[in-house]
């Protein structure tokens, strides 16, 4: 009886310590909570060969992430933010041109919506190289805004800022 009481007491204590340990682990891996609570914004560009997210998205980068992400490492980004590359890896993804027509799998909706609004180039396609020197012409939108008459970007690029252009378009040796 008294032994049973002690065992129950020990088990209850162990469970409480375990719950606290669980809380410790969750606090130390906030990406888990982010995924389950709201999910991250889809990455609007391919990430193949671009694994140093904080190069552009660090607090000093051209498109900094929120302060609450400070201290997270690059490997954590894709745990919440999925890229077009990973969407393409989903079975049955059906793309036509630049837009996802349907991605029926669970959780894929937000990526298709994002792609429709302006994702990266479709699978197998590469973004065109920048065919002119960039120096002195950093305001890409001055000529390539979707509503510009000089050389407008495709309609799905609407809303993008100058800082993101070189995320997909490389300088063509100039």
């Amino acid at each position: 009886m008294r032994e049973k009481y002690s065992v129950h007491l020990a088990l209850a204590t162990g469970c409480l310590v375990f719950l606290f340990t669980l809380l410790f682990a969750l606090l130390q891996s906030p990406e888990i909570l982010s995924t389950s609570v709201q999910g991250g914004v889809a990455i609007p560009h391919p990430i193949a060969g671009r694994h140093k997210c904080d190069h552009c998205h660090g607090r000093a980068g051209i498109r900094p992430y929120p302060v609450r992400h400070v201290g997270w490492n690059n490997a954590s980004c894709t745990k919440c933010h999925l890229s077009p590359d990973s969407v393409m890896a989903l079975p049955h993804a059906n793309f036509s041109g630049n837009q996802a027509k349907s991605v029926p799998e669970k959780g894929a909706g937000r990526f298709s919506a994002s792609l429709a609004k302006g994702g990266g180039p479709a699978a197998g396609k590469k973004a065109p190289l920048i065919s002119h020197p960039v120096k002195g012409q950093e305001d890409c939108l001055a000529c390539h805004d979707t509503k510009n008459e000089i050389k407008p970007a495709p309609p799905d690029h609407e809303g993008r800022q100058n800082e993101t252009c070189e995320g997909c378009h490389s300088r063509g040796g100039m």
Binding site: T21, A25, Q28, S29, E31, N73
Partner: peptide, 19 residues
């Protein structure tokens, strides 16, 4: 300790060790 990103399972394992 503001450094994160080692992943949930690793942190759980470490927490269990300390606990």
């Amino acid at each position: 300790h503001d450094v994160h990103g080692r992943g949930f399972w690793r942190e759980l394992a470490v927490g269990l060790g300390f606990g």
